[in-house]
Design a protein around this nucleic acid. Structure first.
Lengths: 395, 395
DNA sequence: ACAATAGTAAATCTACTTTCCTATTACGAG
DNA sequence: CTCGTAATAGGAAAGTAGATTTACTATTGT
């Protein structure tokens, strides 16, 4: 219930914030369009834009033409006002990918430079690693400073202590690492779970683009779930929300799968594939082989897999009731639309729930894309908020 | 990212809103305290309070004394500025309670009148029923008008169509009923699921009072779950969030409990009690008997019940990771602290999760209390917001 | 009597709006 | 093809709303 109170200064701050937020949301706008959208008068709009331009936050990017009268100036956010570094940190024991994939983008969202780092540049020292990656990408992009760093990690992040937890990459579990990085590199840093970031990417440019909220079901070596509430992700008290692998399957009974991880996790899928005669090295390969094949064995394998995934789906649908569930992760990607249809069929056969199901629409590295999206959002928000004033204390 | 923009008028509106919100949150405040909290100057604070008082929203409730100088006037929200009617609608086939329990309270939260209605005053016509209840309570309280009606229903509410769904009370499932009530009685109406309202009461005056967020596990005839996210409840795309009874227990297998409802729902608990030699008429009675008893059978029954509840708990804890889970509903209430301890023990024994568990601290009708809390919140928010101006359009 | 505090009044300041003016462009008539 | 006209962008001047600072009066306790 806390509301802002203040004087004329606050009003100006709010009008600058509103203008900046509109420029960020809509890309390019003329003075007249801004006047329309903010409801402010012509002189005020001009004055606000002058201030923003002088502060280096907005720039004139062109002029209109065609109509009668002078050509209106077209304004946009100054892309050079901030630089975001996104780094996806991976546990290489589980994948064939490079341990670090990173990208640099400007405030407008344009990717300035991107690279994978097959070996750790500083060999186990996260601060050195990030410093080296930042230096390399800045050199390639011709930038001199990074404003914000967004990390994507296979683990959970505790913002209270600035510590990344449950991570199996040397040095990265060190207590207070994120705080340390912020201090050592003089920038703001945020970290997030890789599945959460994949969900953010899916919302910004994937299958969930139009959806108000949705849940992402990650089917890979591990089982994960991200719950997008529309405005933010459900993170949980200890950053453990979505750890769906721990969901038990009833009372403990010998011989039965104990939890969802043992029902639909990577090893379980691989075992199921092997039982159906598939010989790939990983669950992903077996599913990909089966999805391409036209044999009875393939149909049986995918059908059995779909039955299991439908169970996971039902747990999420019953508890959260999202308007959409997106299947992502290596296994889902390998199974594609064929697997999706089988899962939907099994879901409808076994439950009264009717939550729509999609597969990921992303082919690129979803975690890195999500880290870029998330980092951009942070920077943009802090930029807009920094124009605004202190709120009155709540409670 | 949408921000407000505007002129001096907006500023005044904001300052009035902020002042009103503080009065609502803190109860009573002097001009000086408001000045401190809002950061506004003395003349502005005076002016805002004059406006609020003239509008009938604030009143002087007393004077300070003791210090030197004149006695400062103490302001508070005018309790007569709004009247909230809360009605809990029940499915009598499942309980021994009256079908309607209702209370009238003022803007300050004081209960003006309260009554249970053992028979339906208008016999199956919701509009007539509500009208009769409102008239009766208004007469007792000496009020002439109700501002807002908050319904608590055993079912889910779809705000889009104003329809209550999955409700087994004659007439109450009629499409558009809530909209119809608002029009017929000339007031604002909101409805919510009974378990959700119990969670709201638990947050305001129960076991979750200090917690930022929490989950409420409802153990009664049905199984339910409310997920409090701190600022709001998780409702889901179709109002079906928390329908935890549908959570499947693995692949369909004959002879096994199929879902959580058949594992820990009322009938399953009653069957478990009967198997342990308990003879109560309902699950609630059996659990209450066992909780009071010191026999081996009681210990075995409660232990087996706790094992089952721990499974439900694990599902919620793994997916949502709340900082606290409150056990509520007839069965949990009957089991009390003894059951809670057994559940915690079983939970720790079978999962790596460590979510704290409590039992409900409410003895009164949680749904009615929650309906009052929720209705009050609505009225207060709309009151504060009505002082404020139109937001600029997003996207 | 005096010090401290509550509340009001007057003067000032900030930022927004309305109104008016000038400059620029497209278009069509001559 | 040229020039006048209508339409529009942007800015300047005047006016207004609301907040602040400062000064003053009234009230209460020591």
């Amino acid at each position: 219930m806390a509301r802002l109170a203040g004087s004329s200064k606050l009003l100006r701050a709010m009008n600058e914030s509103a203008t900046m937020a509109l420029l960020i949301d809509r890309g390019t706008l003329t003075r007249g369009e801004l006047r329309e959208l903010t409801g402010l008068s012509k002189p005020t709009t001009s004055d606000v834009l002058r201030t923003l331009t002088e502060a280096g936050l907005a720039v004139v990017v062109g002029h209109t033409s065609g109509g009668p009268g002078p050509n209106a100036e077209v304004y946009a956010v100054n892309p050079a006002a901030a630089t975001v570094l996104a780094i996806s940190v991976r546990d290489v024991s589980e994948t064939l990918h490079a341990p670090f994939e990173a990208a640099l983008c400007d405030l407008g969202g344009a990717v300035l430079a991107r690279a994978a780092y097959p070996s750790d540049p500083a060999d186990g020292d996260p601060v050195g690693t990030v410093r080296a990656i930042a230096a390399d990408l800045c050199a390639r992009a011709g930038r001199d400073r990074v404003t914000h760093l967004q990390l994507g990690v296979p683990g959970s992040y505790d913002p209270g202590t600035g510590t990344i937890r449950h991570i199996d990459v040397t040095g990265w579990g060190r207590p207070g690492l994120v705080t340390e990085l912020a201090a050592a590199l003089d920038l703001t840093v945020d970290a997030d779970n890789d599945v959460n970031l994949a969900a953010i990417a899916e919302r910004h440019r994937g299958a969930a683009a139009g959806s108000g909220s949705f849940a992402l079901l990650w089917l890979g070596a591990g089982l994960g779930c991200a719950i997008d509430l529309g405005t933010s992700l459900l993170r949980g008290a200890t950053g453990g929300a979505g750890e769906i692998g721990y969901v038990p399957l009833g009372l403990a009974a010998p011989g039965q799968p104990r939890d969802l991880q043992s029902l639909a996790g990577g090893p379980a899928v691989a075992a199921l594939g092997a039982a159906h005669g598939f010989t790939g090295a990983t669950a992903e390969e077996m599913v990909a082989d089966a999805a391409r094949a036209d044999s009875d064995a393939a149909a049986a394998f995918l059908g059995a897999l779909a039955d299991r995934i439908a169970v996971v789906l039902a747990v999420v649908a019953a508890l959260v009731d999202p308007p959409l569930v997106v299947l992502a992760g290596e296994v889902a990607q390998a199974g594609g639309a064929r697997l999706r249809d089988l899962v939907t069929e099994a879901f409808h056969r076994n439950t009264p729930l009717r939550t729509p199901v999609e597969v990921t629409a992303l082919t690129d590295d979803a975690v890195l894309l999500g880290a870029m999206d998330s980092g951009l959002r942070s920077v943009r928000e802090s930029l807009v908020d920094s124009l605004n004033a202190r709120p009155i204390p709540a409670r």
